[in-house]
Amino acid sequence: MNTLQKLDHIDRKVLEILQSNAKITNAQLSKEIGLSPAPTLERVKKLETSGIIQSYHAQLDREKVGLGVTTFVQITLVGHKKQVTDSFVEKINSIPEVVECHHITGSGDFLLKVISKDISSYQRLMLEKINEIEEVASTQTMVILSTFKESKVLPIP
């Protein structure tokens, strides 16, 4: 388990800026946080080394790359033993269309975020892959009609 790391106001500012623009130059970042370039780079490297900054990504427009359907799928497993859960998670991790997998409380056991080309691709994925996982007892799908907020920026306390 990760332990909470102390962040000062400059670290928080660096994280805030990098979350909104990971392509910012070190020179521009140093100007925005009020430090010279060398200590700025040192701070970023420290945040990377400590694991607070895990990676950098290009956020894509799903529709422009041909992915028109996003769904949330609630999964109920056949049982709650560790081996059932572990086996399910291992199989789900091998399906690229499943972009998120969350172990949840409530009426289901897992919540998946699934992105597909279209409804027929989604249906094929469900029938041929997800419903074929022997640990799955039932599924319930919620198709996303519109998205009004989708932020990848974490609110740093």
Rank of each mutant, 00 (worst) to 15 (best):
S121H: 14
T85S: 15
F110N: 01
T105I: 04
S94V: 04
E128P: 05
S94K: 15
K129F: 01
F110D: 05
F88H: 11
V89M: 06
I92Y: 12
I104Y: 07
E100C: 10
H102V: 09
V114P: 00
D118K: 03
I130N: 12
S120N: 12
E97N: 15
S87I: 05
E100P: 02
K81E: 07
I104Q: 04
T85C: 14
K113A: 06
K113Y: 08
K81A: 11
I130E: 08
V99C: 06
K129V: 01
N93R: 15
G79H: 03
K91E: 12
V89K: 02
E100D: 07
M126N: 04
N93Q: 14
V89P: 00
V114Y: 00
F110S: 00
L127A: 06
R124G: 08
H80V: 12
Q83T: 10
L127G: 10
I104F: 03
E128R: 11
C101H: 07
V114R: 00
H102S: 09
L125E: 04
L111I: 00
E100T: 02
E100L: 11
I130M: 13
E100R: 03
G108N: 04
V99S: 11
I130L: 13
V84K: 11
S87T: 06
H102C: 04
G79P: 11
K91T: 10
D109K: 08
K113S: 01
K113L: 08
K113E: 03
K117A: 06
C101N: 08
